[in-house]
Computed example of a mutant assay.
Amino acid sequence: MRPEFRQLLADLANGVIDGVIFYDLDRLVRQPQDLEDLIDIVEYVKRPVTGATGGRMNLINDSDRHMARMMCVMALKSSEDTARRVARQHLSAAQNGIAQGRIAYGWVRRGEHKGQLVPDEADVVVRIFQDFMSGESAYSIARAFNAEGIKPPAARTWSSTMVAKMLRNPRYAGMVSYAGKHRVQAPTAGDGWSLVLFDDQGRPLLGSWEPIVTPKLCSQVQFEWQRRRQKVGIKLGDSGTAPVNKYLLFEILRCSKCHRGLVGHRYQRKSGKVVQSYICPSSERGGRGGIAIAAPAAEAAVEEAMNAFLHKQLRTSQTGLDQSAGTITALQARWDQELPRRANSSTGGPRVAA
Rank of each mutant, 00 (worst) to 15 (best):
A94F: 07
R56T: 11
R341Y: 01
R143E: 06
Q332D: 14
S137F: 03
A10R: 11
S137W: 09
S256L: 11
Q226V: 10
R315C: 02
K216Q: 15
G287E: 02
R6V: 01
L248A: 13
V213K: 04
G207E: 00
K165D: 15
A333V: 11
I279M: 00
V176G: 07
S63P: 08
A179P: 04
G19A: 02
L236D: 12
A154Y: 13
L331M: 13
R342H: 06
M70H: 05
N307L: 15
V42K: 00
T327E: 14
R228H: 01
R171P: 08
R342N: 06
D322S: 11
Q33N: 10
P296L: 01
S346M: 10
V126K: 12
A83Q: 11
S277I: 06
L321C: 10
V274L: 09
C255Y: 13
L35C: 01
K312F: 06
A155F: 12
M306I: 12
G51A: 10
E43A: 01
D37Q: 09
R69T: 01
L12V: 13
A179M: 05
P350Y: 11
G237L: 01
E4N: 03
G261Y: 11
T188S: 04
A144E: 09
P187A: 03
F22T: 05
K270I: 13
T188C: 02
L262Y: 04
I293H: 06
R65E: 05
N344A: 15
M175F: 15
G320I: 07
H113F: 02
L248D: 10
A186M: 11
V118M: 15
E304P: 04
D26N: 04
C72I: 10
P119Q: 04
G15A: 03
K231N: 08
I328Q: 07
A144G: 07
Q95G: 01
G115W: 04
R229G: 02
P215K: 01
S282D: 06
V184W: 05
Q7D: 09
A189I: 14
S194L: 08
G233I: 01
I60N: 07
L117A: 12
Q323K: 13
R288P: 03
Q95L: 10
K312E: 06
D131H: 13
